[in-house]
Amino acid sequence: MVITGLTPDLARSLDQMIDGKADAHEGLFRKQDINNDTSGNPGTEWATNNTDAYGPETGTADDTTTNLDEDQVITVVAIYKMSQ
């Protein structure tokens, strides 16, 4: 299942509830576009949090400038592998 529009803190909380550990790289709940550049080390953190702003000037969520109260919070996409 692909879940879009998650705030980083919500994604971290869901990952903790589903896997028992809030890491973006391992388990049934993962960040969609995470690179495998961790050399196999477990426990890769979710890279952003709710203080990172959505980049309106670029139209992408890659801008990690500090968020103001009126700014949209950056969002992440997660993959949830459900058991069948």
Results as ranks from 00 to 15, higher is better:
residue 50 N to H: 02
residue 10 L to A: 13
residue 75 T to E: 10
residue 39 S to A: 11
residue 45 E to S: 07
residue 13 S to F: 11
residue 76 V to F: 03
residue 78 A to L: 01
residue 12 R to T: 15
residue 45 E to A: 10
residue 82 M to W: 04
residue 55 G to Y: 11
residue 71 D to I: 02
residue 26 E to I: 06
residue 69 D to Y: 07
residue 52 D to H: 14
residue 25 H to L: 05
residue 58 T to I: 10
residue 58 T to N: 11
residue 3 I to K: 05
residue 63 D to M: 05
residue 51 T to R: 04
residue 9 D to V: 08
residue 2 V to M: 08
residue 55 G to M: 11
residue 8 P to L: 08
residue 4 T to E: 14
residue 7 T to R: 07
residue 17 M to H: 12
residue 48 T to A: 12
residue 30 R to H: 04
residue 59 G to M: 08
residue 21 K to H: 08
residue 27 G to K: 07
residue 84 Q to W: 07
residue 76 V to H: 01
residue 57 E to W: 09
residue 29 F to M: 14
residue 32 Q to L: 11
residue 77 V to M: 11
residue 11 A to M: 15
residue 10 L to W: 05
residue 79 I to N: 01
residue 76 V to D: 05
residue 24 A to M: 06
residue 84 Q to H: 09
residue 70 E to P: 00
residue 64 T to W: 03
residue 8 P to C: 12
residue 71 D to N: 07
residue 41 N to K: 06
residue 11 A to K: 09
residue 20 G to I: 02
residue 53 A to T: 10
residue 71 D to A: 02
residue 60 T to R: 07
residue 23 D to C: 14
residue 49 N to F: 04
residue 56 P to K: 13
residue 48 T to H: 14
residue 77 V to Y: 04
residue 75 T to P: 01
residue 10 L to F: 12
residue 46 W to N: 08
residue 32 Q to A: 10
residue 48 T to N: 12
residue 7 T to C: 02
residue 22 A to P: 08
residue 18 I to E: 13
residue 56 P to N: 10
residue 9 D to Y: 01
residue 58 T to S: 15
residue 49 N to Q: 02
residue 79 I to L: 03
residue 5 G to I: 13
residue 55 G to T: 14
residue 72 Q to M: 06
